[in-house]
Amino acid sequence: MTKRELIQKTGFTLLAMCMAANIVFLGLIIFFIASKGLSIISWEFLTQAPVDAMTRGGIAPAIVGTLYLTLGAVLIALPLGAACAIYLTEYSPKGWTVNLIRISVNNLAGVPSVVFGLFGLAIFVKKAGFGVSMLSGSLTLGILALPVIISASQEALIAVPQSIREASLALGATRWETIHRVVLPAALPGILTGVILSVGRVAGETAPILFTAAAFYMKGYPDSVLSEVMALPYHIYALMTEGTHPEIQTQIAYGSSLVLLALVLSVSMLAIFIRQRYRRGYNA
């Protein structure tokens, strides 16, 4: 083997090790959480409310709360995000507005999540007077999800071939008719992927709901959009940092972490699956 070949071989081995590290990380996280969490999970754990200051019982209100918050966030972010993507790809000529909006979206995506939390606290909780509530939390998470939905939708819209837009316009369809009858249906799987990705992101976020929505301990389920909610990620945080029975609480946290991890990972794998199928379909 020449020296050149040796260098190449060493280099490639290092790169393979970097890649392998990702798999190891993912494997380690899933393995540790699953190995200790599985024994905690039972039907009661998933369907009952916590009792005795969260040392016994289940985590059902936290699961339900997370679903509510996520649903609320998507309801807010999807129309805004899709509209923004449609404007950027379908309506807007090149120019300063596009650049301005694009830069805003990119920067909004880079804002630390705790800053969203402060914004939600100052605007929704205090100024709008929604208090610490599901509504405040959903609005805050919705803004956080906006860039995810915008970029996924934009990608999906750009992937729709220009030729079918032209076909529609050439038949005398207006721009809007073309968008909602031809372009949007064709881009739907891609937009859906964006929605699912944002669900995965939102469901796992903690910092934005710390001061806007989350409750440490609730016996029942939230009864209005203005009531506080429990949420899985905050629940895990609280179990690890508050309360008086660290041993038992850590065990419950393992169970809750496994539930959250399973939820988020299955959602993101679903998104990846849809996208791959859809891309293959397009090329055929």
Partner: peptide, 11 residues
């Protein structure tokens, strides 16, 4: 890689 990126920070 995408799945690893989607693991929530709380985890």
């Amino acid at each position: 890689i995408e799945v690893l990126a989607s693991v929530p920070s709380i985890i």
